[in-house]
């Protein structure tokens, strides 16, 4: 009896040290998360306050972390030139059209890879498509410029960027949609065939709704990439078409960078993606956990 008590006390002590250790790990984790939050949120904070500062205040040697004077007129300032608003429209057109195209083609390709891997070219082709995302974009910057320069519509057009961004978004859409389609139970589709639906109708009626949350996540990722793209836009467009990303660096006065206007415009450019994200957040979370909640 005495032996058992001693044993269980030792055991108890052991469990408490384990618990202590876990508590320490948890505090460390929380401290790390706090640092991480600071790291990610501070630039955002600085952007927001800079957007409300005067041009003079942005150039102080010792930066202020709260505006001495509030300058909401910065927001009117960025639209002093009417074409600046058009830049947001251009970006929107390019991002949305590109996303729609990437989703349409990516879903069909992803479905083929998921359901008919042999006929669709197998793992190798699927991986090759994904590998297109792996090279540094700069490597194809100049070749792409000459390629699109020889098209009837030229480089300085919506269509060029809409097609060009497929280079990056189509592999992403194809690969992710393939994973989502693989997770969608095949038997549900087969049940639809037996109900008398043709494969195309079964795809639209049954399979697509199953992967819809995933599809929305993919759409968000594609859209944000195209919305924020700078490198290619900077080289391709500028006269007929201007995306907002290439407009931001133009807010200068002589040799002076107008940080306040740049940040104000950036803040405005953040509104569409953030709104979308908030509206679709529910689907995104479901999309990312699609495999877990099926059935």
């Amino acid at each position: 009896m005495a032996v058992t008590t001693a044993n269980s006390e030792a055991q108890l002590q052991q469990t408490s040290t384990v618990a202590d250790r876990w508590r320490a790990v948890r505090y460390l984790f929380l401290a790390f998360m706090a640092l991480w939050l600071l790291f990610t949120l501070f630039p955002l904070y600085f952007m927001v306050i800079t957007a409300f500062k005067s041009a003079a205040e942005t150039n102080l040697t010792v930066p202020t972390f709260w505006p001495n004077e509030w300058f909401p007129q910065n927001f009117a300032g960025v639209f002093a030139e009417a074409t600046n608003f058009n830049a947001l429209v251009d970006s929107f057109i390019i991002a949305t059209a590109n996303t729609a195209l990437a989703l349409f083609l990516g879903s069909l390709a992803g479905y083929a890879f998921a359901r008919f891997p042999k006929q669709a070219g197998g793992e190798n082709l699927a991986f090759w498509i994904l590998s297109n995302r792996m090279f540094p974009p700069v490597a194809i910057l100049v070749p792409m410029f000459f390629l699109f320069d020889n098209t009837p519509w030229g480089t300085d057009s919506h269509l060029s960027l809409i097609i060009l961004y497929l280079v990056f978004n189509l592999p992403l859409a194809t690969w992710l949609m393939m994973v989502f389609f693989r997770d969608a139970p095949r038997e549900i589709e087969e049940a639809a065939y037996l109900d008398g639906w043709t494969p195309m109708k079964a795809f639209v009626r049954v399979t697509l709704p199953l992967v819809l949350p995933g599809m929305i996540s993919v759409a968000m990722l594609c859209w944000i990439f195209a919305w924020n793209e700078y490198l290619f836009a900077n080289l391709f467009v500028g006269t007929d078409v201007r995306t907002y990303t290439i407009v931001i660096p133009t807010f200068t006065h002589g040799s002076q960078t107008l940080w306040n206007l740049q940040m104000a415009f950036s803040l405005i450019a953040m509104i569409p993606p953030v709104t979308m994200f908030i509206l679709l957040r529910r689907y995104m979370v479901r999309g990312l956990s699609l495999g877990v909640v099926k059935g």
Binding site: P185, E187, I188, E190, A191, A192, Y193, L194, D195, G196, W197, T198, P199, A202, V206, P209, L210, K294, G295
Partner: peptide
């Protein structure tokens, strides 16, 4: 003949119901 041209009905061991449709729509599908 492909399955959708045969008049053969089948239940699956996993039931294979359409999760996004109501019971009514599931039954109405054929």
């Amino acid at each position: 003949l492909p399955p959708y041209r045969r008049r053969i009905a089948m239940t699956f061991e996993s039931y294979a119901l359409y999760p996004h449709m109501t019971v009514y729509e599931n039954i109405a599908s054929p």
